[in-house]
């Protein structure tokens, strides 16, 4: 799965003028149990489709990837997306993001200096820096799943979910720093930016100890 997605990104790199830098660190000795951690920087589903980019997933050692643009997406401009995952931890960040309303309208409807999400042992958090949607500042609160609706000319009300946190059936949690949802031309369009998934702390039972052939003078 990971390989297929990586090749997908690479194919996109060839098809579009994209400079991608993928840094894959070899598996380390980490042995965290439970579900794999994963992260992606951006995805869109609807009239505009963007596969989760760039996806990283880890069941054993650290994995990280960076890309500097999104393949075949003229509406989306950014300086860099970085994603990283190790067991029990995942993070994603998107820097200098601009999303246009339409290809013929270069003016950004959404702009952000930084949108990042991180997941640590089943606890999620999000960070938004200088995020504006149709001129309105969007800020990350401390509580998850903050929702507001922002009117955008030509699109109607865009539902914005900040620090979206979903508890998955396998015990992991997914935190998405910013999610936009809108009904456009009778179809729903969603865009997720900076998403991280990791397993909770109580993913496995601690082992029964193996006695060490040793002694320690204790306070008998």
């Amino acid at each position: 799965m990971r390989k297929r997605l990586r090749y997908g990104v690479i194919a996109g790199v060839i098809a579009a003028p994209v400079a991608a830098a993928a840094a894959v660190v070899p598996a380390a000795s980490a042995t965290g149990g439970g579900s794999p951690s994963s992260a992606f920087g951006i995805s869109a589903v609807g009239l505009v489709n963007i596969p989760r980019t760039p996806v990283v997933s880890s069941e054993s050692g650290p994995r990280s990837r960076s890309v500097v643009s999104v393949p075949a997406s003229p509406l989306v401009h950014l300086s860099v997306i970085h994603t990283r995952a190790v067991p029990g931890h995942a993070e994603a960040s998107v820097a200098d993001l601009k999303i246009a309303k339409a290809a013929i309208s270069p003016k950004a409807v959404l702009s952000a200096k930084l949108i990042s999400a991180r997941c640590d042992d089943g606890a999620g958090s999000s960070r938004l820096v200088d995020v504006r949607l149709a001129g309105r500042a969007i800020q990350a609160g401390t509580s998850p799943n903050s929702r507001i609706t922002v009117p955008v000319e030509g699109l109607g009300g865009v539902q914005v979910t900040v620090n979206k946190q979903v508890h998955n059936a396998d015990g992991s949690i997914t935190v998405t720093a910013l999610e936009l949802a809108v009904q456009a031309l009778g179809k729903s369009q969603t865009i997720a930016i900076s998403s991280a998934t990791c397993a909770g702390q109580s993913s496995g039972e601690a082992p029964k100890p193996t006695p060490v052939p040793s002694d320690l003078p204790v306070t008998g």
């Binding site: 380390a28 980490a30 042995t31 965290g32 149990g33 050692g61 650290p62 190790v86 067991p87 029990g88 931890h89 993070e91 991180r118 640590d120 042992d121 990791c198 702390q201 109580s202 993913s203 496995g204 039972e205 601690a206 082992p207």
Partner: peptide
């Protein structure tokens, strides 16, 4: 620090 791949987490009941 957690989340650096150097911490194994488990649960003792």
């Amino acid at each position: 620090p957690s989340g650096n791949g150097k911490v194994e987490t488990a649960h003792s009941p």
